[in-house]
């Protein structure tokens, strides 16, 4: 019973219908498109290859697995010092950025 509760909690926290320990996989074309978008739109704050330079932005290399909704929300609506991008990027494009951020981790 307790196990079930823990599993349910993990699912809720993950915010996505994935077991907490499952590694997401992405289409290479999505990753490639996300990489191009990242270079054009995100890179100047989050750094080349996500190595953020001055420390003034979120370190995307630490973005946790399984929190796609959080990523989509933060990019679309903005969060803390991150400005919203929902007016210049489509949801598909933000999804491709997510694929790049998560799919190109070492």
């Amino acid at each position: 019973m307790r196990l079930l509760a823990v599993a349910a909690l993990a699912l809720t926290l993950a915010g996505a219908a994935l077991p907490a320990n499952a590694k997401e996989t992405f289409d290479p074309a999505q990753i490639a498109h996300g990489k191009k978008l990242f270079a054009e739109i995100c890179r100047h704050c989050h750094g080349a290859n996500m190595v953020n330079m001055g420390g003034g932005s979120f370190d995307l290399r630490t973005f946790p697995e399984g929190q796609r909704d959080r990523f989509m929300n933060s990019v679309t609506k903005g969060k803390n010092n991150m400005p919203p991008h929902g007016d210049v990027l489509s949801q598909d494009e933000i999804g491709d950025l997510y694929a790049y951020v998560m799919g190109s981790k070492p």
Partner: peptide, 11 residues
Amino acid sequence: MSMYVPHPVLG
């Protein structure tokens, strides 16, 4: 400087 420059002091 906070956005771009990877100088160790700035962090």
